[in-house]
Design a protein around this nucleic acid. Structure first.
Lengths: 208, 208, 208, 208
DNA sequence: AATGAATGAGAGTTCATTCAT
DNA sequence: GATGAATGAACTCTCATTCAT
C-alpha cells in the first residue's frame, strides 16, 4: 500500500487510519493493531504519538471538530440573514457528512458514547459548533424575526438532534435507499425556520 | 408481591439488572457477571434465558419498545387533532425518559451503537414508534393542516432526533443543570407544529 | 503430569507452581502463563484465586512465613536455655532452606526486593520470625547470660543477615561445592553466642 | 569541573544516572530511556557505551566494587591488629552505605538478583571484598587471637550478611526510624570479634 | 559519535461462554 | 433448572534494542 498522501506524517497517517477503523468497528471493538496495520506502522508506534487508545479518539474529536468549525465559519461568512444562516448550516452539516463519512460516523456515534464512558471529557468543540446555531437564534430574536419565546439552548440541541439523526440514517442506509441530503437539509431548515418565525401571515411585512 | 411464574420472574430480574448495568457502564463495558450479580443469579443462568449478551440487549429493546408503544398508544388515544397529537407525543417521550432513565439511556445510547455494529438487527419496533409521528404528519396533511411539501419520513427522523438529543442531554446533565422536560416538550412541539403548519396568520382560527 | 497431591486444591496447586517458577526465574521475569502451565490450569484461573500476580507473591509470603513460624515455634518448644535456643534457631533456619529450597529462594530474594517495589507491603510475618531472636536475646539479658549492651534490634538483623546470606550462598552454589549446612549453623550460632555472652572465664558458673 | 575526556564524561554520566534510576526503580523496572533522560543523552547512545542493559548493571558493579576495594584498602592501611581491622571494616562498610546510598542499594539489592538470574556473572569483585575479611580471620588465627575452629569462608559470609542486612534495613527505613550506623558498626564488630576470640578472660583454659 | 523514531515481541489481565455437577 | 469454576482468546500497552540519518 502506498502512503495515502505523499507527505503525510505518521501522526496524520495514524489519525486517518483510526478514523476509518473506528468508523467501521466502533471505538471499543477496534483493536489498536488494526489501526496500526492500516496506517502501515507498528503497534507501538501509535503510542509515540498518542498516550493511549482513548487519547487517539479524543485527538480525532479535537482535530475533526476544528476542521468542522473552520468550515462552518466559511459557510456562514458574509451571510447576514439569520434565516439564510439556518439553511446554510443545515446544508453544510449534511455536506460534511457526505464528504467525510468516516469522520462523521466517528463523531456521531463515538462522541456520543464518549460522554458516557470518558468521564473526564467535555466535548467543548461540539458545544462551540452547536453554539453557532444558538447564536443565530439569538440574532434572529434581536432582529424580531424569530419568536422571543424560543429557548436558544433547547432549540440548538433540537436542531442538532434533527440534523444528526438524519445524518445517521443516511449513513446507515444502503446506497440505493438514500434520500437526497439536499432535500433533508431543505426540509429540516424549513421546519425550524418556520417553526421559529414570529409569524408567517400574508400581511405585507415579511419581505422588506 | 407474589411471584408470578418462576421463569418469568428470573427473566424479568435479569432484564432489569441488565438495564441498570448497561445504563451505568454501557453495553460493551458491562461484564455479564455484573448483571448476574445484580440479578441475584449465577452467570450461567443468564444463558438459559438469553442466547448471549447481545441477545440480552436486543431483548431489552424489544420489551422496552413494546411497553413504549403501548404507552404511546394510550397517550394518543381519543386525540384527534394532529397538532395536539404532536404535543402529546413530545410530552410522552420526555416523561418516559424521566420515569425510566436507565431504560432511556440504554435505548438511546446503546441502540445507536447496535444499529451500527450488530449488523443483523433491524430496530423494527423503533420504526413503529417513529412511524406514529409519520402517520400524524400524513393525517395533518390530509386534513390540510400541515403543508404538503413536508416529507413525513424526513420529518419523523428530524422530530425523533430532536427529542432524542434533548433527552440525551437531560439524561447526561447533572441534576442541578437540568432544564424542565415539560419546557423542552413544549418547545420542540411548538417548533415542529409551527414549522409544518400550512400558515399561522393572525386570524382567530388556530383551533377549528 | 499427575497432580502433585491427590487432593491438592487449585489454590495450592497454583501456589506451589508459583513458588517453583518464581524460584527459577524471579518474580518479575516469570510470566504468569508459566505458572499456569506448571499448575496445569488456564491463565485465567489464576485470577480466580489471586487478584493479580503481585497478590500471588504476597500470598506465598504469608503462607510460607506462617509455616515457618509454626515450625520455629515447634523447634524451640520446651527449650529454656537462650544459648540452646540460638543454636536451634540457626539449625532450624538452615534445615528449612535445605528442605524447601524453592520457597527459601523466593522468600530470600523476592521478599527483599518486594520491600522496594511493593511500596504498600510490610513484611510483618518476617518481623515476627526475627522477633523471636530478639526475644531470645532479651531473655538472655534478663538472665544475665548475654551482655546488656547488645541491642536486640541490631542483633536480630545481624543474625538474620548472617543466616540469610549463608543460605543464599548455599542455594546458589553448585551441589559439589556446598558446605554442610549443619556446620554453618554451628559456626553462626557459635559466633553469635560467644559474641553475646557476658564473659566466658573459667569461674565455675559457665557449666551448670 | 573541567570535562576530563568527552568519552569518559558520557560513560560516567550514564553510569551515575543508571545508579540513581536502578536505585529508585530496581533494575528490571527501570526503563533504559529513564536512564538516558537523566544522563542527558539519547537512548541509543547508551548502547555505544554498554552492550545492553545488563552490561550496564554489571559495569556499575565492577566500577563501584573497584572504588569500594580501594577505599577498604585505605581504611585498613597501617592497621595490624586483626581485631581493630574487623572494627574498621564494619565502620567502613556502613560509611559507604551512608555516603553512597544509591550505589549501596544497587549493589545490595540488584547484585543479589543478578547472582541468581544473570547466570553467567560471577561477582568476583564482591568475593575480593569479602575475602579481605576472610584474610583477617586467618591472620587472627595465625596470631592465636581468633579460634582455630572458625571457618573463614563461613565466617566471611556471615559477617557480610550481617553488615548487608543492617545496611539494607537502614537504607529502606524512613529517616526518622534510622538507627545510628556507628552503633550498628560497633555492635556487629563487637559480636563477631568476641565471637571469634580464643578467649576473653585472663585464665588459659578455654582452648585445650 | 550521537540521535531518537520505529519496531514488535511479549507482558498482565479481562470476560463471554461452556459444561460437569 | 441452576450453578459457578474454568477456560483461553484477545485485548492494551511497554520497552530493550536497532539503524538510517
Amino acid at each position: 500500500m502506498a502512503p495515502q498522501s505523499p507527505r503525510a506524517d505518521k501522526r496524520t497517517l495514524i489519525i486517518n487510519a483510526a478514523v476509518a477503523v473506528f468508523a467501521e468497528k466502533g471505538f471499543l471493538l477496534a483493536p489498536v493493531s488494526d489501526i496500526a496495520n492500516r496506517a502501515g506502522v507498528a503497534d507501538g508506534t501509535i503510542y509515540r504519538y498518542f498516550k493511549n487508545k482513548e487519547d487517539l479518539l479524543l485527538s480525532i474529536f479535537e482535530q475533526k471538530m476544528d476542521e468542522l468549525l473552520v468550515g462552518l465559519g466559511e459557510a456562514l461568512a458574509r451571510i447576514d440573514d439569520p434565516i439564510e444562516k439556518v439553511r446554510r448550516f443545515a446544508l453544510f452539516h449534511f455536506q460534511q457528512v457526505r464528504d467525510h463519512r468516516d469522520a462523521a460516523e466517528v463523531l456521531q456515534v463515538e462522541l456520543r458514547l464518549s460522554t458516557k464512558f470518558l468521564k473526564e471529557y467535555r466535548p467543548i468543540k461540539l458545544w462551540a459548533y452547536l453554539g453557532v446555531f444558538g447564536q443565530i437564534v439569538r440574532e434572529g430574536q434581536s432582529l424580531g424575526i424569530f419568536r422571543g419565546d424560543i429557548d436558544p439552548f433547547i432549540g440548538m440541541w433540537a436542531f442538532f438532534g434533527a440534523l444528526d439523526e438524519l445524518a445517521m440514517q443516511w449513513v446507515l442506509s444502503r446506497k440505493q435507499d438514500r434520500f437526497p441530503l439536499e432535500l433533508a437539509a431543505e426540509q429540516v431548515a424549513g421546519i425550524f425556520i418556520r417553526g421559529m418565525l414570529v409569524h408567517q401571515d400574508p400581511s405585507p411585512e415579511e419581505a422588506p
